[in-house]
Amino acid sequence: MQLNINGLETRYVLSNEGGGPWLTFIHQLGGDLSVWDQLAGYFRDDYTVLRYDVRGHGHTAVPNQPFSIADLSRDLAALLEALGASHTHLVGMSMGGMIAQQFALDHPSCIDSLTLADTVSSTPPEARAIWDQRAATARREGMSALVPATLSRWLTPDFQKAHPEAVEQIGEVLLRTHTEGFALACEALRDFDVSEDVKRIDKPALAVAGRYDTGTLPAATQALANAIPGCRFELLEAAHLAPVEQSHRFAALLETFLAAGV
Results as ranks from 00 to 15, higher is better:
D45P: 14
Y47C: 00
G261K: 08
G171L: 06
H163N: 11
R200H: 11
Q28L: 11
D32F: 07
V194G: 06
L14M: 11
L189R: 01
L241F: 14
R232N: 12
G30I: 01
G58D: 07
V173Y: 09
T179P: 00
L146W: 04
V194A: 06
T137A: 12
R134E: 07
C231G: 09
E81V: 05
I69G: 01
A227Q: 02
L254R: 05
A252W: 10
Q133I: 01
D118K: 02
H87I: 00
Q133E: 13
R11T: 02
T48Q: 12
L217E: 13
L76S: 05
L79E: 05
Q169A: 08
T119P: 04
A82P: 03
D118Q: 03
C186F: 08
G18R: 05
W131S: 11
T115S: 15
V262K: 13
P243K: 08
G181F: 04
E255Y: 08
D37P: 01
A239Y: 09
V13S: 11
F192I: 03
V13Y: 03
A223L: 14
L105Y: 06
D213L: 08
W131T: 07
A259I: 02
A117H: 09
G58C: 06
I69K: 01
S195A: 12
V91I: 10
F25Q: 02
P229N: 02
N16H: 15
R139C: 03
H57M: 08
W22E: 00
T123D: 02
E17L: 14
F67C: 03
P124R: 07
T256L: 07
I201E: 10
P108Q: 09
T150P: 15
E245S: 03
V13Q: 13
T115A: 15
L79F: 05
C186T: 10
E180C: 04
D106Q: 10
M95H: 04
D106N: 13
P66G: 01
L76C: 08
L50K: 05
A185V: 01
V194I: 05
P229K: 06
A183W: 10
L258C: 01
G181Y: 02
F67Q: 04
C186H: 07
R44P: 00
P148F: 11
L72M: 15
A85C: 11
G56S: 09
K203W: 05
L151C: 00
A149C: 02
T179I: 09
L151K: 01
Y212P: 07
P125V: 05
E237D: 15
Q246N: 08
H59W: 00
I26D: 04
A239H: 09
E17D: 13
A219V: 00
M143N: 03
A225G: 06
D118F: 01
A136T: 13
L258I: 06
N4R: 15
T150Y: 11
A166D: 11
V147Y: 11
G31V: 05
T256S: 12
G230T: 06
T216P: 01
A188L: 03
T60A: 02
P204W: 11
E196T: 09
P243R: 09
L217N: 07
A252R: 14
R153M: 10
F257Q: 01
K199N: 10
I111T: 03
Y212R: 12
H27I: 07
F257G: 01
P148R: 05
G230S: 04
V35A: 08
H57D: 05
N226Q: 14
D118N: 13
V49C: 12
